[in-house]
């Protein structure tokens, strides 16, 4: 955690601070490893990440292969989770289905966190009219439900994976910016910022090399919380037809394709995707929640 921090900077008489932070870092790790909520969440996340990485090489069936003679088969020894409307093996599809969401959601989170951090640093550091104008624009973004903003832009530009990443990222940026701005405001008037300014450092250097390392904890927490919401939003967009596109075995998309036959009693076509989505989101949120608690202590 300590790399990139001005450890040996003689102009900053804060030698005790980095050491204290390192100790705190160890304390945080200890707290996390003793928290059952964190361990459960991390285990869920690890499981789905492993599936996303390796499932294609060990699943029993090709998740894309139709078998029109065996459509809508109930779970059996052959097909553990049954087959869908096109006869595709649901078990294989659920495991491989972790891929798209676990690629797109983290990328969108990174886009949102980086953009939001930049905006938050600028508005918080400069204040004044910059803050007022950008703040008002962000308010406009936040005055619509997120899913509707995403829908608006995706209709205009057409849904594709890069568009989804950028749109969801940018939709989240104002929320991250709000947190970062608040954190910058508490740091802005501390001595080390003034010291750097006296030393003749420019605004970009002060923001990135001085303030940013000190506000990393809230940014990390915000990032993990956003990851949970990114999965929520992207899964919902896929369900609505504006996220991941066919023939991907993505969970939201599979549920959209199959929930029509639910009334017929073919529950296995959607139940496992539903459980997978729920477990992933709960896992991310358990991690985010424990991280937030550990860093607050």
């Amino acid at each position: 955690m300590s790399e990139g921090m001005p450890l040996a900077d003689p102009a900053v008489p804060m030698a005790a601070a980095p050491a204290g932070r390192e100790e705190k870092g160890r304390g945080v790790a200890g707290l996390l490893l003793r928290s059952p909520a964190f361990l459960l969440g991390a285990a869920i996340l690890l499981f789905w990440t492993a599936c996303a990485l390796f499932a294609p090489s060990f699943v029993p069936y090709d998740p894309f292969a139709d078998d029109l003679l065996n459509t809508l088969q109930p779970p059996s020894a052959e097909h553990w989770f049954g087959t869908d409307q096109l006869g595709r093996d649901v078990f294989s599809r659920v495991l491989v289905g972790a891929r798209d969401i676990l690629t797109i959601a983290p990328l969108a989170t990174i886009v949102g966190t980086v953009a939001g951090t930049a905006i938050g640093l600028i508005t918080g550091y400069f204040g004044g009219w910059v803050d007022a104008v950008i703040g008002r624009l962000l308010e406009v973004m936040l005055s619509l439900p997120l899913i509707i903003v995403a829908l608006l832009v995706l209709v205009a530009l057409g849904p594709s994976t890069p568009t989804v990443v950028v749109v969801v990222g940018l939709v989240f940026a104002p929320l991250v910016a709000r947190t970062v701005r608040a954190a910058v405001l508490t740091e802005r008037h501390l001595d080390y910022v003034a010291a750097a300014a006296v030393r003749g450092e420019g605004a970009p250097y002060i923001m990135i090399a001085e303030i940013l390392p000190n506000i990393l904890p809230p940014i990390i927490v915000e990032g993990t919380v956003r990851l949970g919401y990114a999965i929520f939003t992207i899964a919902s967009l896929s369900f609505l037809g504006f996220g991941v596109q066919p023939p991907s075995p993505d969970w939201g998309l599979s549920i959209a394709e199959n929930y029509g036959v639910l009334v017929g009693g073919f529950w296995w076509t959607v139940v496992f995707d539903t459980a997978a989505t729920a477990s992933l989101i709960v896992g991310v949120n358990l991690v985010a929640e424990s991280l937030q608690r550990a860093l607050a202590e």
């Binding site: 949970g228 919401y229 929520f232 899964a235 919902s236 369900f239 939201g252 549920i255 959209a256 929930y259 639910l262 009334v263 009693g265 529950w267 959607v270 139940v271 539903t274 989505t277 729920a278 989101i281 709960v282 949120n285 929640e289």
Partner: peptide
Amino acid sequence: GLSLTVIPEFVSSIALILVFAVLLRWLPL
């Protein structure tokens, strides 16, 4: 509360439809 808040509506809808409209048939779909 924390776990339920983060479940997307379409996920909980499917579970609810399954239980109340398909299995128990208490409520119209």
